[in-house]
Amino acid sequence: MAEALILEVITPERRVIEVTTPWVTLPGIAGEMGILPQHVPLVTVIHSGVLRWTDAGQEHRAAVHHGYAQVSNDRVTILTELAESSEEIDQDRAAEAERRARDELRKLIDDGKDSAQRNDKYEAKLSRAITRQTIAK
């Protein structure tokens, strides 16, 4: 019986992470989702959020921005367009990005130009910025 999970995070450019860990939590669309060994096979969509796992007793965190996760045979595979570890994130830039995204959204709403499509773009930016700041703290 396997007591560990293999976590791998893959982006179109590279394989970001490949580790063995006793547990993983994913930013699922309906909130955080914990995965333990012997989980049933699962395919899910993930949102911009924090991915957590432990390695040698140390908890690690990384930001993932929209993607898909698959769990099968104690292997958690995350496909995402973008994944960043806390060291890679510039908090000031993220704060600035958050402010800008909020401004844009407010402007769209004030101008009455808010459509689902345009909002999506800035909401995605906003959620990315928020995730980055959460990680960097």
Binding site: A30, M33, V40, P41, L42, V43, T44, V45
Partner: peptide, 19 residues
């Protein structure tokens, strides 16, 4: 039938297939 789809198979396909 063994795989769990979250939220459901159809919604995942809507975003996964174009990707």
């Amino acid at each position: 039938r063994e795989i769990l789809f979250e939220p459901n198979r159809y919604e995942i396909m809507d975003s996964l297939l174009p990707a």
